[in-house]
Design a protein around this nucleic acid. Structure first.
Lengths: 137, 137
DNA sequence: AATGCAAATGCAAATCGTTTGCATTTTTAA
DNA sequence: TTAAAAATGCAAACGATTTGCATTTGCATT
């Protein structure tokens, strides 16, 4: 339902076949994917794309705030998700990788009190919840 | 003040010179360190140690729950901290890497309600807060 | 204290994920 | 339509981490 071209333009990103494919894939996938998974998924669709292009596109998307990059625990592979309009976090199944977005961020008020206590200026946080989904548990 | 040998034994880990050095370093460092930082710090102390040994020791410590492994955002290097007795999280300065432990985990009650809503079985979570400390901001 | 076995270590090479340089192609704006 | 700028493909480089194997160490037993 989204116009991917529009979405790219809005984020100050040049339009290209590969970028459209990638953003479309991510929004259909509705979950987290590694660069390689993205690459393979697009290959499977008989699309011409290169792994380094995937990385470069993801990097651009992250920089423009279109995509969030994080890391699966006990792994050194990065995973990527489309960023929701509102700041949110994910609950991720350790077995099948199914993900659910949390309805709200539980840290908002918490951060304020921590800032006061510690005298830090908090700019960011990383939160992912892990477990097993209904089917896998 | 801790007996590192005892601590290793308690965790079912064989005692060795390198393991003692590493656990001692981590507990004095009182913060997060990369494998390489640990390696270099021990080298500096004129200790004989190898980078792959550092990795192997850290892996063993993580497996036994003595150490927590996580990832600095926008980097693909793992960082390690001694695990506190109580479950806790860190506030990390993006500039100087100074860390502060949060007094309690803000997710405890939250997880229960999420489990009910989503039908997931939550087993773990990853939370780190980032910002700038008093000196660096 | 000496012995033997399993586990830990050092070293070098392999591996994995990610990034980069450069030639070619595509996009965009004039 | 064309020129300039940016994006892509490809191969090679890179950095972090892991692995295979020979050697050393820790530890239980004599």
């Amino acid at each position: 339902m989204l116009d991917y071209k529009e979405s790219l333009k809005q984020h100050g990103l040049k339009n290209s076949k590969q970028r459209n494919l990638l953003i479309k894939l991510l929004s259909n996938a509705d979950g987290i994917m590694t660069a390689e998974e993205i690459y393979l998924a697009l290959k499977k669709q008989e699309e011409k794309i290169n792994l380094s292009t995937v990385y470069r596109i993801l990097e651009a998307f992250v920089e423009k705030g279109l995509v969030v990059k994080s890391t699966f625990p006990s792994s050194n592979t990065c995973v990527f998700t489309l960023k929701h309009l509102e700041h949110s976090h994910h609950l991720i199944c350790l077995k099948c990788k199914k993900t659910v977005s949390l309805p709200h961020c539980p840290l908002k008020e918490f951060e304020h009190s921590i800032e006061k206590e510690t005298n830090f200026n908090i700019t960011d946080h990383n939160l992912e919840l892990y477990g097993y989904c209904n089917n896998c548990k």
